[in-house]
Design a protein around this nucleic acid. Structure first.
Length: 104
DNA sequence: CTCGTGACTCCCG
DNA sequence: TCGGGAGCCACGA
């Protein structure tokens, strides 16, 4: 399997509950600062085969990238159940919930 | 092997 | 705030 893909999956597994990370952040940690798009692709493809906490990954604006009718509600519900709070604009406050990249 | 397709992000009006 | 263009490159067919 592609080493980048492996690294991305590993990073995602490291995101602690109640925290979120951005696609670009994961890509950078996995070795490709410009691979945000690939991260999204990997997430989509691999979350079907692997058991991944894909809901803890959002775009850089702190918003969920999924359409309301396809996954948005579920992702938001999962995050809220972990304590993540969304503001009126549907955004997550990074100053409180962004994963710092380290495990506790 | 080739090729279309993005759950992204940056940059410029 | 919003939109278009370009770069990015792994996955699945």
């Amino acid at each position: 399997m592609d080493p980048f893909t492996t690294a991305v999956i590993a990073c995602i597994r490291n995101i602690p509950p109640g925290k979120v990370a951005t696609y670009g952040q994961i890509g950078a940690l996995a070795g490709k600062p410009t691979g945000a798009r690939q991260v999204a692709r990997i997430l989509h493809a691999m979350s079907r085969k692997h058991h991944l906490p894909w809901h803890r990954v959002v775009n850089k604006q702190g918003r969920i990238s999924l359409p309301r009718y396809d996954g948005y509600e579920m992702q938001r519900a999962r995050l809220e159940s972990e304590g993540v709070v969304f503001d009126a604009d549907g955004r997550i406050a990074f100053d409180r919930f962004l994963w710092d990249g380290r495990n506790e």
